[in-house]
Amino acid sequence: MARAAGERAGRGGRTLAFDLAVLLALCALFVASLCLGSVETTPAEVLGILAAGPGDASTAAQVVWQIRLPRVIEAVLLGGALSLSGFLLQTFFANPIADPFVLGVSSGAKLVVAVVIIVVLGAGQVMSPAASVGTAFLGSLVTMGFVLLISRRVRTQGMLIVAGVMVGYICSAVTNFLIAFADDQAIVNLDNWSRGSFSGATWADVGAIAVATLAMSAAVFALSKPLGAYQLGEPYAQSVGVNVLGLRMLIVLVSSLLSACVAAFAGPVSFVGIAAPHLARRGVGSSLPLLVTPACFLTGAAFCCGCDLVARTLFSPVELSVSAVTAVFGAPIVIALMLRGRAGR
């Protein structure tokens, strides 16, 4: 019993150390994102600008308050949301490479957003942030429904991933078909959205994102105990009083809403939902949702914040797609962690 208590204490200490390390890295990236760019400022200048408030009319203050600060906050919130969505899907399907991008959920969201963008632009109207989230959520939910139906018919997790990829291809094909009949402005808008970017963030967007992502993140943390039982198998979860059907529905809804929020405001962003949960589990040395959930959010936030900084500054004034940068860094991380895990076994 004393040994078990010692193991729990050691695991808790490792988790706290990892969370603090990631939080420090996130703070450093946050400050760097506010300082670096076409208008460079020092950390002391940024601190003075933030202390003075948004009323300062200087160029540096306007750049920090109106462009960089909402953008970096959006990257932090959406990175954490995408990481949690990937963690939920990996738990749900018991598959280490399940995430919204791989399973075609992001492509489904893109399809519905494409329909709305083309129709709305044709009608001369503008979508509100709530409408963007709603349409992306609908696409994510419908696509997830198809994946769930397929999961009942296939017997291996590998086939499930292949089926998810095929669903993504179908959604992409229908989207391309719609683009063929869209006007030039609609095509430009959809192309800019589909590249994945945190640019153009506004404080109104940040407010909507904060409400959605923080509420859903709190829901994921509240589900930590039943998720831990679910990881041990449905029979065990039922034996300890978990409503498995209700839990599965909540996982689908919460993961779909998290990925929809990312798709609505930043477009499809790849590999964060795979890489960040792996890094979090490796960092805390456990798969317990109670320990992994906070680490997962912080890791995804830091990962997206860093990738956005690279995308914005590496070839300035040319800005890269953030999805391309996350893939460049995320894919090797996943490969390395899987090879390391296999070697360990």
Results as ranks from 00 to 15, higher is better:
residue 15 T to P: 00
residue 16 L to I: 04
residue 17 A to S: 08
residue 18 F to V: 01
residue 23 L to M: 11
residue 24 L to D: 03
residue 26 L to C: 12
residue 26 L to S: 09
residue 32 A to E: 07
residue 33 S to G: 14
residue 40 E to M: 07
residue 44 A to F: 09
residue 46 V to E: 00
residue 48 G to Q: 03
residue 49 I to C: 05
residue 51 A to S: 11
residue 51 A to I: 00
residue 55 G to D: 08
residue 65 W to Y: 07
residue 65 W to S: 08
residue 72 V to A: 09
residue 72 V to Y: 02
residue 73 I to F: 15
residue 78 L to K: 07
residue 81 A to M: 06
residue 86 G to M: 06
residue 88 L to P: 13
residue 89 L to Q: 10
residue 94 A to V: 12
residue 98 A to C: 12
residue 103 L to G: 08
residue 108 G to D: 01
residue 109 A to P: 11
residue 109 A to C: 15
residue 110 K to G: 10
residue 112 V to T: 09
residue 112 V to G: 14
residue 113 V to M: 15
residue 117 I to R: 04
residue 126 V to E: 10
residue 127 M to P: 14
residue 131 A to W: 08
residue 140 S to M: 10
residue 153 R to C: 03
residue 153 R to Q: 04
residue 154 V to L: 01
residue 162 V to N: 08
residue 166 M to N: 05
residue 170 I to V: 06
residue 173 A to C: 03
residue 174 V to W: 10
residue 174 V to T: 07
residue 181 F to V: 09
residue 189 N to C: 08
residue 193 W to M: 11
residue 197 S to N: 15
residue 197 S to Y: 10
residue 198 F to C: 13
residue 202 T to Y: 10
residue 205 D to P: 02
residue 214 L to C: 13
residue 218 A to D: 07
residue 224 S to N: 10
residue 228 G to Q: 03
residue 229 A to P: 04
residue 232 L to I: 02
residue 236 Y to S: 10
residue 236 Y to Q: 12
residue 236 Y to F: 14
residue 247 L to Y: 12
residue 250 L to Q: 08
residue 264 A to R: 09
residue 277 P to I: 09
residue 288 L to F: 12
residue 291 L to G: 05
residue 309 L to F: 15
residue 310 V to F: 01
residue 311 A to R: 02
residue 322 V to I: 07
residue 323 S to F: 03
residue 331 A to D: 00
residue 331 A to W: 04
residue 341 G to I: 00
residue 343 A to M: 03
residue 344 G to C: 09
residue 345 R to N: 05
